[in-house]
Simulated scan of single mutants.
Amino acid sequence: MRLTQKGQVTVPVEVRRHLGLRPGDEVEFELDGRGARVVRAATEPSRGRRITDRLRGKGDVRLTTEQIMALTRGADDD
């Protein structure tokens, strides 16, 4: 990994998956005798994140893409 002039690095996808990190998540660096560790910040998730996490996987809507598009356009399905 290369450190940018702004001090940024890209966290590898396998590390993000393992830690369950998503865009917008807060992380912290913890220093130890060998270097630093990236850990999820000990902050409360936002209200929106809590709602979406709670609802994830609970939907049972069986519409085709065409039906969804018709609904968003206000067209009747007749």
Rank of each mutant, 00 (worst) to 15 (best):
M1L: 14
M1C: 07
M1R: 13
L3W: 04
T4P: 02
T4F: 03
Q5D: 13
K6T: 09
G7H: 07
Q8M: 07
Q8F: 05
V9T: 11
V9W: 02
T10F: 07
T10E: 07
T10I: 12
P12G: 08
V13M: 12
V13F: 13
V13C: 04
V13Q: 12
V13R: 12
V13K: 09
E14G: 00
V15Q: 10
R17V: 14
H18V: 03
L19F: 13
G20Q: 09
G20H: 04
L21K: 06
R22V: 10
P23F: 03
P23E: 05
D25G: 07
D25F: 04
D25I: 06
E26Q: 15
E26M: 12
V27W: 08
E28Q: 14
E28N: 09
E28P: 00
F29A: 15
E30W: 15
E30G: 02
E30A: 12
L31C: 00
L31W: 01
D32M: 07
D32I: 05
R34C: 01
R34Y: 10
G35W: 03
A36D: 00
A36S: 05
R37V: 05
R37M: 04
R37I: 06
V38Y: 00
V39W: 04
V39D: 04
R40V: 10
R40M: 04
A41S: 14
A42I: 03
T43C: 03
T43H: 04
P45Y: 06
P45H: 02
R47Q: 06
G48N: 07
G48F: 02
R49W: 06
R49P: 00
I51F: 10
T52M: 12
D53P: 00
D53W: 00
R54Y: 12
R56G: 00
R56Y: 07
G57T: 09
G57S: 06
K58E: 10
G59Q: 14
G59C: 08
G59D: 13
V61S: 10
V61F: 09
V61K: 13
V61I: 15
R62Q: 08
R62I: 04
L63K: 12
L63A: 08
T64F: 04
T64N: 05
T64C: 06
T65M: 11
T65F: 09
E66P: 02
E66H: 11
E66L: 14
Q67L: 04
M69V: 15
M69C: 05
M69W: 03
A70R: 14
A70Q: 13
L71A: 14
L71F: 08
L71I: 13
T72Y: 10
T72H: 06
T72Q: 15
R73T: 01
R73P: 00
R73F: 02
D76N: 11
D76Y: 08
D77Q: 11
D78T: 01
